[in-house]
C-alpha cells in the first residue's frame, strides 16, 4: 500500500514536471532567442511552415529549433533599450497606467468589499448582484457606452480614460468581498465591543487579515492591465501615449530578435511581482474561492 502510494506520487511528479516543462518551454525559448542574432533566428524559424511542402521550395529537413544560441549576443537588447527610445517610452507609459490602477482599485475595492462583507444595509445583496453583472459582461459589450461616456467627459486620448474606469472596476470589489466574507464576524464584533469605529475595524482588524487577498488582487490586476489591448487601442490614439502591450503587436518578421528581447523585458515585471507575492497570492486565491 505504501509502495503504491509512493509510486503514484512519483508518477504524479513526473506528470507535473512534464506539464511544468511544457508551460515553461515558450518562456525559455523566448529568453534564449532574445540572445541570438537575427540571422540565427531566421535559420531557426524560417523553416517552420515550409517543412512539409517540398514541392513549393520547402526543405525536407528536421526543424532546427536550437535551445542554445551559437553565438551569444545582446544586440537585440541594445536595439530595444538604447538604439530606439520607443520601447522605453511605451514601458513607462504602461507603468504610468498600471500602477495607479492597481493601487486605486485595491484601495477602492477593499473599502467597498468591507461594506459588502461586514456591514448590513438594505439592498446590499441586490447591489452586489449589480456589481457582479458588470463584471460578467465582457469589455466588448460595454465598449460603446464606455466610449460615449469617456468622450462626453472629455477624457479621450488621455491616460485617465483608462485609469479611472480601471480604478473603479468591479473585480476588486468582488474578490475582496469574497475574501473578507471568510473573516469571522466574531473578530469584528469583538472590536466593536471594545469601542472601535468602522474605520478602525477596517484598518486595524480586517485589512491586516486581508493582506493575502490584497496581494492576490494586486498581482491579478497588474497582469490584467499590463496585458490590456482594447482599451488603449480605442481610447489612446496618440502613438506616444500607448502602452507596451500594443508594442508587441507591431513586431514583424524582419525584427523577430527584437521581438524576443522586448517580450523578455515585457514579462520581467510580471514575473518578478508574481515571485515576490507568490505565497500571499496562493493563499489569497484559496480563501477568496477564485480559481485562475
Amino acid at each position: 500500500m505504501n509502495n503504491y502510494l509512493r509510486l503514484s506520487g512519483l508518477a504524479l511528479s513526473v506528470l507535473f514536471s512534464i506539464f511544468a516543462a511544457a508551460m515553461l518551454f515558450p518562456i525559455g525559448l523566448t529568453l534564449v532567442s532574445s540572445m541570438m542574432s537575427e540571422a540565427e533566428i531566421s535559420q531557426n524559424y524560417d523553416l517552420i511552415g515550409k517543412m512539409v511542402d517540398t514541392a513549393n521550395g520547402g526543405k525536407d529537413a528536421f526543424l532546427n529549433l536550437k535551445l542554445l544560441p551559437d553565438w551569444l549576443t545582446f544586440e537585440q537588447y541594445l536595439q530595444v533599450l538604447i538604439l530606439s527610445p520607443k520601447f522605453l517610452n511605451m514601458f513607462w507609459n504602461s507603468a504610468s497606467l498600471v500602477v495607479p490602477i492597481v493601487i486605486g482599485q485595491t484601495l477602492v475595492g477593499s473599502l467597498a468589499a468591507y461594506a459588502f462583507a461586514k456591514l448590513r444595509f438594505p439592498g446590499r445583496d441586490k447591489l452586489f448582484f449589480v456589481y457582479l453583472m458588470t463584471m460578467l459582461m465582457p469589455f466588448q459589450v460595454t465598449l460603446v457606452p464606455n466610449y460615449l461616456v469617456i468622450d462626453m467627459l472629455g477624457l479621450m486620448n488621455r491616460s485617465s480614460a483608462i485609469v479611472l474606469p480601471g480604478i473603479f472596476g468591479a473585480f476588486g470589489v468582488f474578490m475582496m468581498r469574497q475574501f473578507m466574507a471568510h473573516i469571522p464576524y466574531a473578530l469584528t464584533e469583538a472590536a466593536k465591543i471594545d469601542g472601535a469605529g468602522q474605520l478602525t475595524i477596517f484598518i486595524r482588524v480586517v485589512l491586516p487579515l486581508a493582506k493575502p487577498g490584497l496581494a492576490a488582487l494586486a498581482v491579478l490586476l497588474f497582469v490584467d492591465y499590463w496585458n490590456m489591448i482594447e482599451q488603449p487601442l480605442i481610447f489612446l490614439q496618440d502613438a506616444v501615449k500607448q502602452p507596451l502591450s500594443l508594442y508587441l503587436a507591431q513586431i514583424n518578421q524582419s525584427a523577430r530578435g527584437v521581438g524576443f528581447a522586448a517580450s523578455t523585458l515585457y514579462m520581467t515585471p510580471m514575473v518578478l511581482l508574481f515571485l515576490y507575492a507568490e505565497s500571499y497570492f496562493v493563499e489569497g486565491i484559496q480563501h477568496s474561492g477564485i480559481k485562475g
Partner: peptide, 26 residues
C-alpha cells in the same frame, strides 16, 4: 527579488534618461 527588481528598473531608468548619449556612442 527586490534587488533584481530594483536593478531592472534602474537599468530601464538609465536607458531612458541617458538614451541619447548612449545612442550617440553607438
Amino acid at each position: 527579488i527586490r534587488l533584481f527588481a530594483a536593478l531592472f528598473l534602474a537599468l530601464l531608468a538609465i536607458c531612458t534618461l541617458a538614451g541619447n548619449t548612449l545612442r550617440g556612442l553607438s
